[in-house]
Design a protein around this nucleic acid. Structure first.
Length: 272
DNA sequence: CACCATGTTAGCGG
DNA sequence: GCCGCTAACATGGT
């Protein structure tokens, strides 16, 4: 579930909660989610300050003041939660960072996800980020850059949009939404798109992601107690998961097609 | 209970 | 090499 807007929302919310805090310890009940032993993670991060949070696609980077970084990917349904000192916590985090003031940052349900330690914060030197395509919100992601990503391909446009090696950050939900906004069918072969189509698609991708970010992303769980923003984007879906229901624009029944092993919902009338 | 949904990777065949 | 498909991973929801 967590796609780019959800991860950007985590970066924003957690910046307010724990940027500047000093890490005291790390613990893991699921060591497989780490790339170092739990006790080693504590040794590597203890007394370091969490200087910032940033994202590339669906990856979240927590940078430390000694130049190292922690890279998190939540995969299917992982989530993160910040808790002030002494706050009761119903769920059990599989990985947890404890700060010097006894507040905590927990990582939940990351059976398939991970939190990896790297001795660098240089994006180009972090193995987890190698081979990823451009982040669609980066300033240099222009319509021409999108055209470059699509050039020479024959695959269905949605399959390319979800391919993290070509474009980092879009999953099933936001690719469906962006294609609906762009009035392009998800099964259109990429080489059938005109330059105008690509311009429209570029604007639709940007617009869809920015709107979702401003609404707080679509995550199920609040980031901290009293978080009233996170999840606001869940009501913005116009096609994702709505197949069989009426198109909000024309009233036609939304269709569904399997693409890249995923269900794609679209309006067979609006989208061509 | 069986199945499907999510993201990613690896492997297979056209 | 490109493309589409499948299985595997874990879990909760129907």
């Amino acid at each position: 579930m967590p796609e780019l807007p959800e991860m950007v929302n985590y970066a924003r919310q957690l910046s307010g909660c724990c940027a500047g805090k000093t890490i005291a310890a790390a613990a893991a009940t699921r060591p497989r989610a780490l790339n170092v032993a739990p006790e080693e993670l504590t040794a590597l991060t203890a007394d370091r300050q969490l200087t910032g949070l940033k994202t590339h696609g669906k990856h979240l980077l927590l940078t430390l003041n000694d130049g190292a970084s922690l890279v998190c990917h939540l995969m299917l349904d992982g989530y993160m939660r910040y808790a002030a000192a002494g706050e009761p916590d119903a769920a059990h985090p599989q990985v947890q960072l404890t700060f010097a003031d006894q507040s905590t940052l927990g990582f939940y349900r990351i059976q398939l996800g991970h939190l990896h330690y790297f001795p660098t914060s240089d994006l180009a030197a972090i193995a987890d980020l190698q081979g990823l395509g451009p982040d669609p919100l980066a300033t240099d992601f222009t319509p021409a850059a999108l055209a470059g990503v699509l050039r020479g391909r024959r695959a269905m446009v949605k399959a390319i949009l979800m391919d993290q090696a070509r474009l980092a950050g879009l999953g099933n939900r936001y690719s469906d939404e962006a294609l609906f906004t762009a009035l392009i069918r998800p099964d259109r072969p990429v080489n059938s798109l005109s330059l105008d189509d690509i311009d429209t698609l570029h604007a639709a991708i940007r617009g869809t992601l920015e709107l979702a970010i401003e609404a707080g992303g679509g995550a199920e769980h609040p980031v901290f107690a009293g978080d009233g923003l996170t999840g606001g984007a869940r009501s913005q879906c116009r096609v994702y998961g709505r197949d069989g229901e009426a198109c909000l624009v024309c009233g036609h029944t939304l269709d569904v097609k399997r693409i890249g092993g995923r269900n794609s919902s679209f309006c067979p009338f609006c989208q061509t």
